[in-house]
Design a binder for these strands. Structure first.
Lengths: 230, 230
DNA sequence: TCGCGGTAGTGTCAGCCTGACGAGAATTTC
DNA sequence: GAAATTCTCGTCAGGCTGACACTACCGCGA
């Protein structure tokens, strides 16, 4: 077999929505290279492990959530990255995965080595992680247009407003609440009403919904037709 | 550095439209494993080579087109595949790329070791190439919905009907020529009229167009809203 | 108790886009 | 020439969207 050999790792772009911000899970590196820099969580692929297995294992380890992340979360591959000089230690290929999680309390160990950072504030990541993050965020933005995956950012039961805030945070736009409500509630299989309502806050109580079986939006929920001719 | 080592290769899903069929470029394997089976063209990543470089190099080699494939073609990454048992020789990670080319004469060497096959007729490929092909075809179908990339299947100058046949072949549907023409000619930047016309065939001569600068379709050209709720 | 601000959800309406055609224009073939 | 074929423009009804008026229901404070 020809070809030189690579170390193969998996890097995770773990996104969640906290308040009005789209946030990414970053870890502070404790080893060279890029010691003390922030980077994406990740690890090497173990023998007899497939890429999604590695990603799921790392996700569980980093979020301290056991397999809980899979209950309402989502995990998909973004792409492979293998520029010859992306890792000074040698030839390393990294397969990036995108994970979407509901907002959760800060990571189990309340240390400063990992935490949520608004993606808009992120700068200077290790390796080519800035590029990977950008690709992951763009993927998430597109995914929200054509699928019902925004609900992956929400807890098992959520209101239409919760869901709208996800779109607004990921797209950094404002959406008319009335039109948004009409769209998502009229899409068959997107939301399953529970007939229960949240109370406590100001205003009329909002109905709680659960995720429905639908996975795709037809027609899509398009972002601003962003004048992009070139 | 932890982790075991992988050989890393690139596999190509090279698609074109011939007549009414979406076709894929396959090669007949001359070595074990899967000797004499059909498989996707590909090769290993050379030292100091990035993944897109390998893909472009292999594409040029396989189509015998030098760099001509890039003139009106398109090359994008699909995903990485690394199941532990996908290659009996050992741990091999393959990054798949999707290439879209205009129809061209059969490969330079008129041998039987490589050629175009209608994707609908393909069966029993080597390794996990059937899965990779399926993923590539699905990616192409989605891409046609949201981008202007169908023109990558066409020669530099083409008619609206040429373009429509691309959509029909990739989606395996029929599209109303009048509505299709309205859609593509009214999308700013999709088609640039040349004011020249093709002649020779039956019927009114069709105008020739060139690709415009637009890359995205707003709104998208949706396939059949395929009743898909689950 | 009674407004009052705030949020949830419904209703309306004009405009754009699409699917489903009709019909005319321009060419080859018979 | 007449027929067949293909390209192109028009028409029209229906669906979806953005914009926004309006009602329903809550907590809060006077």
């Amino acid at each position: 077999m020809r070809g030189n050999l690579f170390a193969v790792g998996v890097d995770l772009v773990v996104l969640t929505v906290r308040g009005d911000d789209l946030c990414v899970l970053l870890v502070r590196r404790t080893e060279k290279p890029f010691e003390n820099s922030w980077g994406l969580p990740g690890g090497f692929v173990a023998p007899d492990e497939d890429l999604p297995d590695t990603a799921a294992r790392e996700l569980a380890a980093q979020t301290g959530a056991g397999t809980a992340g899979r209950v309402s979360g989502h995990l998909e591959q973004i792409a492979g990255y293998a520029a010859p000089d992306r890792d000074p230690r040698g030839r390393v290929l990294s397969v990036a995965f995108l994970a979407l999680l509901p907002d959760m309390p800060d990571p189990d160990q309340p240390d400063v080595v990992s935490g949520w950072h608004p993606v808009a504030d992120v700068a200077d990541l290790a390796f080519d992680h800035a590029q990977i993050l950008a690709d992951g965020v763009e993927r998430a933005r597109e995914t929200l247009e054509y699928t019902t995956l925004a609900a992956a950012f929400c807890p098992p039961e959520f209101t239409v407003t919760d869901l709208r805030r996800v779109y607004e945070a990921v797209w950094r736009t404002e959406i008319d609440p009335r039109n948004f409500s009409r769209k998502v509630t009229s899409t068959p299989g997107f939301l399953v009403p529970t007939n229960r309502h949240v109370t406590g806050g100001p205003g009329r109580p909002a109905q709680l919904f659960r995720r429905g079986p639908a996975t795709r939006l037809h027609p899509a929920m398009l972002r601003e037709p962003a004048v992009r001719v070139g």
